[in-house]
Design a protein around this nucleic acid. Sequence first.
DNA 1: GCTCAGGCAGGCT
DNA 2: AGCCTGCCTGAG
Length: 278
Amino acid sequence: MQYIQRDNCVEIKNVTDFDPVKIFECGQCFRWNADENGVYLGVAMNRAAKVWKTDESVFISGTLEDFENIWRDYFDLDRDYAALRSSLNTDEYIKKAAEFSAGIRLLRQDRWETLCSFIISQCNNIARIKRIIEALCRSFGEPIFFEGKTLYSFPDAERLAGLCEKDLEPIKSGYRAKYIIEAANSVASGKTDLDILAAGSYDEALRTLKGLSGVGDKVANCVILFGLHMMDAFPVDVWIKRAIGANYGKGFDPKIFGDAAGLAQQYMFYYARSQGKS
DNA sequence: GCTCAGGCAGGCT
DNA sequence: AGCCTGCCTGAG
């Protein structure tokens, strides 16, 4: 990978496995949206940015400093996804899913944002998940002025701690409101320390996260994979359940995918959903 | 009206 | 362990 400063953006050359559409639409994040030209605008890590791709390069708006301090890590640019992808060749289905989904990377997202977002995701469709999260940010986040628009950061746990369910009524998160507040209280007080969990073991993280109400196996594994960035987490939702049923059967164990199990899950999810939606 | 959408908790067997 | 039901809200 090489990168150079351009006008108001950084150009990344020679980057493999970076497809903005797949990265942002594979279900791991909720705050990036494409305009009519396929340019993605999003807010992450308290910053707004645009991301787009040409045949040659990937472009990320902003300064070289932001690229090196924020986006390089956020987009996990120092990991060789092409190598991981080609290691997923143990059966025909995962080979096909990996090939179809080439270009996905697992974002290194803010831990609290990931926990809160996936609590909201439960039993909800993606459009509504996004709507609720935007309303949450608009109501409680900090404004970010970007190219004439006002965007909002994701509110930190301290900001939401101490709220009551009524305070969250405007965002229409329904019965999830009490889960959001409980999680915010737990994180803000330090009772749940996501940084410590990230440095510890998968089992410890799973046990601790599931101790929060509104966090079960699926949400906890999403947080571990997308927020704590442990690649062996393997969230099982309805799509993955269907894919497993159709291709592996009852004794399925994600360990067959080795260290790249979490990436395999994203490939399967993206592939299964693209088949199912059409 | 009805069912379903990227689950979870609580209560049951 | 596994099965059931209710849960906020909105789209089809």
